[in-house]
Amino acid sequence: MGCSNSSSPAYGEMSWFCCGSSWGPCGSAGGGACGTCNSGSHQCAWPNTSDACFNITRPDQCGEGLARRTCGHVFYVTSVCSGKCVSVSIADCGPDTNSFCGERSCCGSTCYTNRIIDLTPSAYSAIADLSTGLSPARIDS
């Protein structure tokens, strides 16, 4: 599999988060649920990495049937705005999908709902501008 070519992609909002050693308000972010998270690596946080993770993020409460994917699983994330794609491996649990149920991001007339993935700054900046906080994305497994 690869960018934009799986039969059952997920569509939703992506954002970015810092983890590992960092500065500023990110300073205490730590290595994430998998213990390997690092802002400089192409990694992501996924809301369904374990039962404990799912119980916190509860994407199902927003109508999202996101599959269980564990630490190290690889996703291909394509920015709807730029068309650029990056491969990332799961390193943390998140985002907290059910805190933002119904939230929507658009690129032109293409809008996707619910926050379903967070990328590290290195991964996000490869496909979008960090100064955009939220962006619609397609996620292939």
Binding site: C81, S82, G83, C107, D129
Partner: peptide
């Protein structure tokens, strides 16, 4: 303005060529 730009055809036509941010 950036939201408008990101949703435009013009941006999509050249997004693959862009190297920097704004």
């Amino acid at each position: 303005s950036l939201q408008q730009l990101l949703g435009s055809t013009a941006y999509r036509q050249v997004s693959g060529l862009l190297r920097s941010g704004l």
